[in-house]
Design a binder for these strands. Structure first.
Lengths: 355, 355
DNA sequence: GGATGTTCTGTTAACGCTAACATACCGTAA
DNA sequence: TTACGGTATGTTAGCGTTAACAGAACATCC
């Protein structure tokens, strides 16, 4: 029984009774099992030769005491840290959690463990988080985007560990980049829209000067239209709130202002889905009267009344490959000298973009 | 210029030229600035008195060299680790990323930093991840749910650090719990449905024997119905895939089998939204012919054609409060002796549940 | 003038573990 | 018998930092 009030000061005993304050060390296990600390360490890490008998004794003692190794000390002594820093802008739309999941899964088969840091899309925060993470001396770094402050780039270069920049390949990576070309993605979508015969094209996106990937997509998009002698007829931006609701709102607004629009390109699937729902309620004939397309390939789209045209950003592949590169370089089994791995986002026409 | 091929072996110089292999230590900065390591340490941590002149010299040298402190060594020496372990089942629906965001934000004002581990809803994986995390000697632990293996509970108790179990309060916390009562949530929803006059009630959920919160909601729900002499008319379960699409599928299936159903309770908003879209397409009059309700209060619902009835799970509040408890207990400013903090999920009738 | 701070800097000894080397013990070969 | 190789254990010396204490230099007060 534990006296609840004194919880802060008195730990529970763990099998045998132990000193309340101090946490267990190798020494405790070594004393309990009658062998040296080194032997205990060897047993617990499965390293070197230890006889069956000793191994059993040690494991038993460790378990009985409830010993948990101290990786801080271990890492300091061995100069090996099985952590991979993952630095991403946010968790608030599914894109980064998806990438994270893929990284987690890929690393699961290794000793490595991901640790996340969030930047909120600001370079300053990114620099700060990076510094923080590097101070834990991780085995590798995965971070979103190719745009960083000079200081951040310097830190990355000096870190001496594998660095993988993900999501984007339009630029110069510090070390290795894995992603898609957002410029190309924008261009491909523009081409498809032009080819389908749409002429009055609107763009709806987020008000994020620092979302470089969205910006590059937009640049590629306008570039693609320009090749066909077209330009964006109108545009609207939003920030914050429920993306689905914002999609409705923006769509209504842009069509009120520019009623002859015949295509809407959304910077993400969520607002695209909002627009889709809104237009269908208005009785608009999609894709004949107005065509629609989003970006990302979120699996939410599968359940929509009409499948929104989109472009898969290869998020899972990106996560998987990035993690794999870190894992292999850490293990010393990495072969390639490629510094840019460009995946090809494939356009999905769905049912909202004429072919 | 860097020779790309020899990248692995030759690090960039950092301002002055440095030894390629070894990473910088306090000693390097101390030598570069002509003071002792201790003084450098003091400057870099803003601790103790250091004269203006020395401070400037040191900061300059540190910056010039590109020194990044080694927290591994720092943590070992000071026995303080500014990490908070957060252990959650998954990142693949928005609920846990949301909680994570809230935790991150709350901790941003402190020295503490969250580190995530994923359990995939299995107790074994949870135990493993917990062990892994504890070996970094974090300042606190936040983990989802009250159900853990015996070993995990023992580790938590023995850890000697603040432990906050989140999301659920139906059970006995190891230390402190912050969440809602899912049993109560299920009951409240049942009451509202009964009160609205629905009689033939179906349940649609996930096939997850280990999602204890979903199970408790279901128990509370059937209990609530029982009080009114009702029971669940039919049920369907799914696993994997796009929740929105699954919601459609399940809804269709259950109605084919049990056509006289007049209410559908979904275990989450996503499948609820799928059901909603499906039924509207079928021309079903919601909420008169069939009523609907989900669970979670995701902000996606705002953009739906009809606002789905739901119950807010207080995810952001839970994250915020949990983080705050850890932060205050770490700082020693925590007062309360409460071991269960129960938040009240509020029912939102939306437009799919008669009042 | 000596005692008593105050402000600044340095020295020493951990922190808990692991790499590297040293040693002990066994069996087997020459 | 000595030598040798393998297996099983122990010993020593860090890893890079910080806590705790110890000075040094200078001003302040009676």
């Amino acid at each position: 029984m534990v006296d609840v009030l004194s919880w802060e000061h008195s730990k529970l005993t763990n099998g045998t009774s132990t000193n309340p304050k101090r946490s267990l060390t190798l020494r405790d296990v070594s004393e309990a099992s009658g062998v040296s600390e080194m032997t205990v360490s060897r047993v617990l890490r499965n390293r070197g030769d230890v006889s069956q008998g000793t191994r059993k004794k040690v494991l038993e003692a460790a378990k009985r005491l409830g010993y948990v190794p101290n990786k801080i000390a271990g890492a300091l002594a061995s100069k090996r840290v099985n952590l991979v820093a993952v630095i991403i802008p946010s968790m608030s739309n599914m894109v980064f959690p998806t990438v994270m999941s893929a990284i987690s899964e890929e690393l699961e088969e290794t000793e490595l463990q991901p640790v996340v840091g969030l930047t909120n899309y600001t370079p300053e925060q990114e620099e700060k988080v990076l510094y923080e993470m590097l101070s834990w001396r991780p085995s590798g770094i995965i971070l979103a985007g190719l745009e960083h402050t000079d200081a951040a780039r310097a830190m990355l270069r000096n870190s001496g560990i594998p660095v993988v920049e993900i999501m984007d390949v339009d630029g110069e990576p510090v070390d290795t980049a894995v992603g898609i070309s957002h410029r190309r993605a924008g261009r491909i979508m523009a081409d498809a829209i032009v080819k389908a015969g749409y002429k009055r094209i609107g763009f709806l996106g987020t008000k994020m000067p620092l979302d470089h990937r969205a910006r590059k997509r937009f640049e590629g998009f306008t570039g693609g239209l320009a090749k066909a002698g077209l330009e964006v007829a109108d545009q609207e931006f939003y920030s914050g709130g429920s993306a689905l609701a914002k999609g409705r709102e923006l769509t209504q607004k842009i069509l009120e202002r520019t009623p002859d629009i015949d295509f809407l390109y959304y910077s993400n699937d969520m607002i695209g889905a909002g627009g889709l729902l809104h237009l269908r309620e208005q009785g608009v004939d999609i894709p004949n009267q107005i065509g629609l397309a989003g970006f990302n390939g979120v699996d939410l789209l599968e359940g929509l009344p009409q499948r929104l045209a989109t472009m898969d950003a290869c998020r899972r592949d990106i996560g998987r490959i990035a993690a794999k590169i870190i894992a292999e370089r850490t293990a010393g089994t990495y072969e390639s000298t490629e510094t840019k791995i460009e995946l090809s986002p494939k356009i999905e026409f769905g049912e909202t973009l004429k072919r």
